[in-house]
Amino acid sequence: MKSSVIIFPGSNCDRDMDVALKKFGFQNKMVWHNDDNLPESDLIVLPGGFSYGDYLRCGSIAGKSKIISSVINFAKSGGLVLGICNGFQILTETGLLPGVLQQNKNIEFICKNVFIKINNKENKYFKNIEKEVLELHIAHNEGNYFCSSDELKKLEDNNQIAVSYCNKDGNCDDNVNPNGAIRNIAGILNDKKNILGMMPHPERMIDKYLSGEDGSLFFKNLLNNLKK
């Protein structure tokens, strides 16, 4: 399976993502934001980081970069697009995913492990994944997901809330909401379920000794689903 990771000025999780994708068997290519065309890909990843120094709004400038029109076309034709952290912010700024990621409620940069509950397994990202709750890392200042109440109703009705912040047993409440995100939302899918944006970083959880391996589960599972 072929993947491409887009690099923007200020991306800093692009190489971690490259390592993770290759570790689990993707043939990955790195793509510069100023390129016109995407290489042939089964998966496009918008990595974490601070594209354009978070100027104006996080992800807003990257969301207008040259390669993005190809990413939008790829996504609209049903291709898999995964945005992690800043990548999620970019996806909302392009309009591929609804809503916006605002500054964390407590005005603090948060860097810690969290638990997320998988709400929807009817998609390529989570189908057949062995766990209901994953322990992943978050590191962000703007992860407070917000959308209008109409949009939230659409997300819920269409089962688009992919993952929510929870405790280790899978219970979601305000105490385990790190950033104030509406309904504890950690990640959402588009209505066709081919685009996933989420704040937690699976690429940081792929080593048995250093981090734990819930990220490994995510990548192995995604690769298996793509092969089918």
Binding site: R57, S60, E93, P98, G99, V100, F146, S148
Partner: peptide, 8 residues
């Protein structure tokens, strides 16, 4: 198109 995010 850019300066404001009309969602918020």
């Amino acid at each position: 198109k850019l300066l404001a995010n009309l969602v918020i």
